[in-house]
């Protein structure tokens, strides 16, 4: 299988800040590859290096078989890039934005319409509306259409779902999945852990370092302990109590429950007595499956 991206030992520093530290990974053809990590983890810097907008201080970046340093001109023609803040002209209409990007990339909307029709059809009824007046979800779809209009081989999406409502987010992922049939490789970054499950493979990234690369299911399974979920109405007291319990290793709030790990991966009824003494009588503890976020937490703790 052809490697669309091959990055080896990429490092980048801005003054005092080490944005990326020895990052290596490769992306396969027609893959949806996700970079999952919080703000400031280095996702945008990495994407800018991939799109030839930045040069790494160290390391080699090969994209579509070309060197991002020396062959950037040729490379740029084959990349569709959607930067963090959707790259749209707010004072131009939907139609004008799309036409503009088509012309700039030396093509026409007609020529590649089949590729974007699925996405663009959602916004076509509003094609006369100025991009600045669209909702987040609509902007996102327009930006995606613009990034796709020249039929790139590689689509680079930097946080395409940030600030977009849940419905649009889920639609967006469906659209990305459909693009696979056109053999378009997609790399996407997101701060949302739950979106990791939508990717073929993901890299968890934190402080400029990759913590883990694998398919999301395997990453989840990498969780090294047995995870328990504890529930009680008074969450603050519960967390506090669990943290102080001698057998507890970690305790983190997780939605409406607390995710806990214990030494020996088990607990006995004495914990209920313990909690009862602290005035928590209605706690419920059960085994639960670790999610990708739990694994991320574990990896982060290990890295520190």
């Amino acid at each position: 299988m052809q490697k669309i991206i091959e990055a080896s030992d990429i490092s980048k520093r801005f003054g005092e800040t080490q944005a990326l530290k020895d990052i290596s990974f490769s992306v396969n053809e027609s893959e949806i590859f996700g970079f999952i990590g919080p703000d400031g983890a280095g996702k945008t810097t990495l994407f800018r290096i991939i799109t030839t907008l930045l040069l790494p201080d160290d390391g080699e970046m090969k994209v579509l078989g070309m060197d991002s340093k020396t062959e950037f001109k040729e490379l740029r023609k084959n990349i569709g890039y959607m930067p963090g803040r959707f790259s749209l002209y707010q004072d131009l209409s939907v139609e004008e934005n799309l036409n503009f990007y088509a012309t700039v990339f030396g093509t026409t909307v007609k020529e590649n319409y089949d590729l974007i029709s699925d996405i663009y059809s959602h916004i076509e009824p509003f094609k006369k509306r100025l991009a600045g007046n669209l909702s987040g979800g609509m902007k996102q779809k327009l930006a995606l259409s613009c990034a796709l209009i020249h039929k790139p081989k590689l689509l680079v999406l930097d946080e395409p779902t940030t600030g977009v409502d849940a419905v649009s987010r889920s639609e967006f992922w469906e659209m990305l999945k459909k693009l696979k049939q056109y053999k378009i490789t997609i790399i996407v970054s997101t701060p949302y852990m739950d979106e990791a499950m939508r990717c073929d493979r993901v890299a968890l990234i934190q402080n400029g370092k990759i913590l883990s690369i694998d398919n999301p299911e395997k990453i989840k399974q990498g969780y090294s302990r047995k995870l328990f979920s504890a529930k009680a109405p008074e969450k603050y007291k519960l967390i506090d109590a669990l943290r102080k319990y001698p057998e507890t290793i970690t305790a983190y709030p997780f939605g409406d429950s607390v995710h806990v790990t214990f030494t020996g991966d088990k607990y006995d009824s004495s914990i209920y007595t313990y909690l009862g003494k602290l005035g928590i009588n209605d706690a419920v503890i059960s085994v639960t499956e670790a999610g990708i976020e739990d694994r991320f937490l574990e990896l982060m703790n290990k890295a520190e």
């Binding site: 907008l53 740029r76 023609k77 890039y81 963090g84 803040r85 700039v104 990339f105």
Partner: peptide, 13 residues
């Protein structure tokens, strides 16, 4: 400022 320059730079322009 609006980030459109990034895409212009990546484009063949």
């Amino acid at each position: 400022e609006f980030g459109t320059m990034e895409v212009l730079l990546v484009s063949p322009l």
